[in-house]
Design a protein around this nucleic acid. Structure first.
Lengths: 133, 133
DNA sequence: CCGGAATTTCAATGATCGTTGAATTTAGGT
DNA sequence: ACCTAAATTCAACGATCATTGAAATTCCGG
């Protein structure tokens, strides 16, 4: 039974989980601010912006919260159009949806990141901890 | 008993209610985004930014919500450092804390307003409804 | 095929949020 | 002194949120 479901999934997605990203034109400003209204998620955004690598393995953020909670927060950011996720084996890599987001909300992401950087109480992620490979 | 309280208030505040505004340096970015994560509050911010007058009577926003609910939303915006309130008789006037906010979070308010303007589902307030006197 | 690593799913929890309505405060006008 | 207008306060409610932990999924390597 489960095997049938898996076969169908494989047939449709070639082994990749259906990680759905919203159409950027459908993203509502209020939803974006709701996504940014959490210290953990703000920390993720800042880390992605400040990190040397564009992409970061999800597990790189394990200092911020438990794996289960991270999944929850990543989904919030993704559904708000802020980040995108790419699947590779059992790992996932997330990155900012820079170009698209900037086209829809010019200047917003930059000033958000600049504002968040100014928060001394925001949890930081040591540079070099955001592994890509 | 109540008279005593009132006398003290008058002595300290000269008849004005103690409407407390937070020190801008203490305002946390996440709190700002939480304040902006609501359609009604976003509509208020946009209306204040687009209106001809700098200040607006609170009652001008009665299209958006009930008086009681407006009080709640105004408090959220005020506590996040986005707006300030001035008391005059039984009326209150609110306005954006432009200069202070911009000094703390440069460019943020502008791109927030520009982003919110782009939302077709955001409740609008007819121009000229934001009375000042 | 088995085991482990990376991540998701699910149900449950306490906390906070947005909303309502009724009662209260405050000040100005007649 | 009353009446009214403007706004606040308070208690209640359902809804959503952040968090936890245990179980399940998925894939890779021996």
């Amino acid at each position: 039974m489960l095997n049938i479901v898996r076969s169908v999934r494989i047939a449709y997605f070639r082994g990749m989980k259906p990680v759905s990203h919203p159409d950027m034109d459908m993203v509502e400003p209020a939803a974006v601010f709701a996504a940014l209204a959490d210290p953990i998620r703000l920390a993720v955004v800042v880390a992605l912006a400040d990190g040397e690598e564009v992409e970061a393995r999800c597990g790189s953020f394990c200092d911020l919260a438990s794996p289960s909670l991270l999944t929850y927060h990543f989904a919030k950011l993704r559904e708000a159009g802020v980040t995108k996720a790419r699947v590779e084996g059992t790992s996932r890599f997330i990155s900012l949806r820079r170009e698209e987001f900037d086209r829809r909300f010019p200047g917003l992401l930059d000033s958000v990141i600049e504002a968040a950087r100014r928060d001394p109480n925001l949890p930081r992620i040591p540079d070099g901890q955001l592994v890509r490979g």
